[in-house]
Simulated scan of single mutants.
Amino acid sequence: MKGLKDKVVLITGGAGGIGSAICRRFAEAGSTVAVFDLNSDAMQKLTSDLEASGARACGYKVDITDHDAVNAAVARVEDELGPIDVLVNNAGWDIGAFFLQTEKPFWDKVVAINLYGPLNMHHAVLKRMSARGTGRVVNISSDAGRVGSSMEAVYSFCKGGLIAFSKTMAREMSRQQIPVNVVCPGPTETALLDNLAQGEKGEKIKAGLVRAVPFGRMGQPDDVAGMVLFLSSDDAAFITGQVISVSGGLTMVG
């Protein structure tokens, strides 16, 4: 894909399943990869692997729910690696539960990570992109934010909010021609899915999801990474404010 070589790309939740796949694909494209994650061990292993393959990669332990910490970390990335060209908001967290069985401390954690985290990242990074008049943003939402998902009420609330916010930012950034787009994974083999579907009941849920997907399989992290790279590339320079599902046909939204 065009225009990714030597670009500085910042990925939140970069040490996780989908995040690490995205990092590896950017590294293969010749980008410089900045990884934000709270899991220091996984992040260190990932960046070491990327560097061993010849890529330039740095890890930063950052709590994206902390506004001041995000600003400081973003400034550090630009000092150490150069101006951020692409922001991928990928970090997320949830545990499956029916809404009426949950309590406010759980809501607060889900909202802080899945909604306030991306708000903090946009605020810190887009200020810099806007001043330079260049950049790309790709937000990882979820089909749960498009059509809802049982046992993911607050998560769906956040992901739906992220979709609406992304469309608004796409409009606000259009003067600077900074595209802002959204990728919505369907059921994907990740630790997040394992959190939602645990034990024997969880295996039945996963089997049911596979049966529901027209392609007949669960998504893999690399399925999502390919779309993220495309939307970050010069090939997608005239695409903004769009929401694209990567779900094997489970969700077909016009």
Rank of each mutant, 00 (worst) to 15 (best):
K2I: 09
G3D: 07
D6I: 05
V8Y: 08
S20I: 05
C23D: 01
R24G: 05
R24C: 01
R25C: 01
F26Q: 11
A27F: 01
E28W: 05
G30E: 08
A34F: 09
F36Y: 13
F36M: 10
F36T: 07
F36E: 10
N39K: 13
N39Y: 02
S40K: 12
D41I: 03
A42K: 14
L46K: 12
L46D: 02
E51A: 14
E51H: 02
C58R: 15
G59Y: 10
Y60P: 00
T65S: 14
H67A: 15
A69S: 12
A69Q: 13
V70T: 01
N71D: 15
A73E: 11
V74I: 15
V77C: 12
D79I: 04
G82L: 07
G82F: 03
P83V: 12
P83W: 04
D85N: 14
L87C: 03
L87P: 09
G92H: 02
G92D: 08
G92M: 02
W93Q: 05
D94A: 12
D94H: 14
G96C: 07
A97N: 10
A97R: 14
A97I: 02
F98E: 07
F99T: 03
F99A: 11
E103G: 00
F106Q: 04
D108A: 11
V110R: 00
A112S: 11
A112T: 00
N114L: 00
N120W: 13
M121S: 06
H122L: 15
A124P: 10
V125R: 06
V125P: 08
L126N: 12
L126C: 15
L126F: 13
A131F: 09
T134E: 14
R136L: 01
S141C: 13
S142Y: 03
D143K: 10
A144R: 04
R146H: 00
R146W: 00
V147D: 03
G148T: 04
S149F: 04
M151D: 00
E152F: 01
E152C: 04
E152Y: 01
V154T: 12
Y155G: 02
F157G: 06
K159W: 02
G160K: 10
G161R: 10
G161H: 08
L162F: 05
I163S: 03
K167F: 09
R171Q: 12
E172C: 05
S174W: 11
R175K: 15
R175Q: 10
Q177P: 00
P179E: 10
P179S: 11
V182S: 08
V182I: 14
P185H: 11
P187M: 08
T188P: 01
T190S: 03
L193G: 09
N195F: 06
G202V: 06
E203C: 02
K204W: 02
I205D: 05
G208T: 06
R211I: 00
V213C: 08
P214Y: 14
G219Y: 07
P221M: 04
A225Y: 13
G226N: 11
M227W: 05
V228M: 09
F230D: 06
F238C: 06
I239F: 14
V243R: 09
V243Q: 08
S245C: 14
S245H: 12
G249I: 05
V253L: 14
